[in-house]
């Protein structure tokens, strides 16, 4: 359904937002793009939805070239953008107008609109202006609106931002159910739990490159022998403590530090704990929180992105 080979894109001629991206997505697959802000996820979505033409490389959507067949591709895809996008109308009006834009006959339009208002819990706010809704409600309108029309591929750019837990699962389950009917889904997210819950495969993207690409299960297995140590410390010399810890564990672990919190991935948990205990005394820091757990997709993500930044063994 989607094929990308050595995809590169630069906005300014100097920095590459996409820097040699290769991947493919199969029919009916739910494909997750994980990455930090500015990693290149949205640029990739824009390229796949024909909003930008990449500087070089090969991209095929539904077997077509976005540079030549943009409109034909867009006729068969749906896009939920990262930012807000509404007409100055009510919730019901927004869905209705979108149905007209996609050429739905009136009876079908009304039927789908009513189903979607119910499914996404928007019935109570149908008469309210979309711009006046809360962040989560707006997001629901945007996603519901996209289901007004038929499509072969759905692109969702961080669709669950601002949604509460129940609505997030409603949305994710809706996506999963559509995928089971053959819809191919590409979505970006910061939330690794939902990628874990939903995706068949994920790609971790950073600085315009795909660092990892595999099924969620395989990625976890890849790091399966390791454990994660989470710790939170306080004291006068927290930076010094983490710096020294990173140096000592350089050959045995990956240390990622954010402020006074550290995440250590290692297959030698005993040795890590021993170093922590020893160094906390030497640097006079207090252990506020310490936890040892199995791996999650988040750890895989942190480690892969940490590698690309050269964080391994540093603090």
């Amino acid at each position: 359904m989607i094929f990308a080979q050595d995809l590169r894109h630069t906005y300014d001629g100097k920095h590459f937002a996409l820097n040699g991206v290769n991947f493919s997505v199969r029919r009916g697959e739910i494909f997750g793009l994980l990455g930090r802000n500015g990693a290149g996820k949205s640029t990739l979505i824009k390229a796949m939805t024909t909003l930008i033409q990449t500087t070089s490389g090969t991209l095929r959507i539904l077997g077509m070239d976005p540079a030549r067949d943009g409109q034909r591709i867009r006729n068969r895809v749906g896009v939920v953008q990262q930012g807000e996008s509404f007409d100055f109308s009510t919730v019901q009006g927004n869905l209705d107008i979108y149905g007209v834009l996609w050429g739905l006959p009136k009876a079908e339009r009304v039927k789908r609109r009513e189903q979607l208002l119910q499914r996404f819990g928007l019935d109570d706010v149908r008469k309210r202006r979309a711009f006046d809704l809360s962040g989560g409600q707006k997001r629901r309108v945007q996603v519901a609106r996209e289901f007004m029309h038929d499509m072969d591929v759905l692109f969702l750019d961080e669709p669950t931002v601002g949604l509460d837990v129940i609505m997030r699962h409603t949305l994710l389950d809706s996506i999963r159910s559509e995928a089971q009917r053959g819809l191919t889904v590409v979505f970006t997210t910061h939330n690794l739990e939902e990628a874990d819950y939903l995706c068949d495969r994920v790609a971790v993207i950073d600085e315009g490159k795909i660092l990892l690409l595999d099924s969620v299960e395989n990625l976890k297995r890849l790091y399966g022998g390791k454990k994660t140590v989470d710790l939170t410390v306080s004291g006068a010399d927290v930076p010094g403590f983490f710096r020294e810890l990173g140096n000592r564990l350089a050959s045995r672990a990956t240390v990622t530090v954010r402020g006074n919190e550290g995440v250590i991935l290692s297959d030698e948990t005993k040795g890590v704990l021993s170093e922590i205990a020893h160094l906390s005394q030497s640097f006079g820091v207090q252990l506020e929180w310490l936890n040892v757990r199995g791996n999650t997709l988040e750890d895989v993500f942190l480690q892969s992105v940490g590698h690309s930044e050269g964080l391994r063994g540093t603090a």
């Binding site: 896009v79 953008q81 807000e84 996008s85 834009l101 996609w102």
Partner: peptide, 18 residues
Amino acid sequence: WADRRYGMLSQLLSGPFT
């Protein structure tokens, strides 16, 4: 102006329109 400002232009252009 409003369609650019409030995201509808990019939404429409990622739909079936040129």
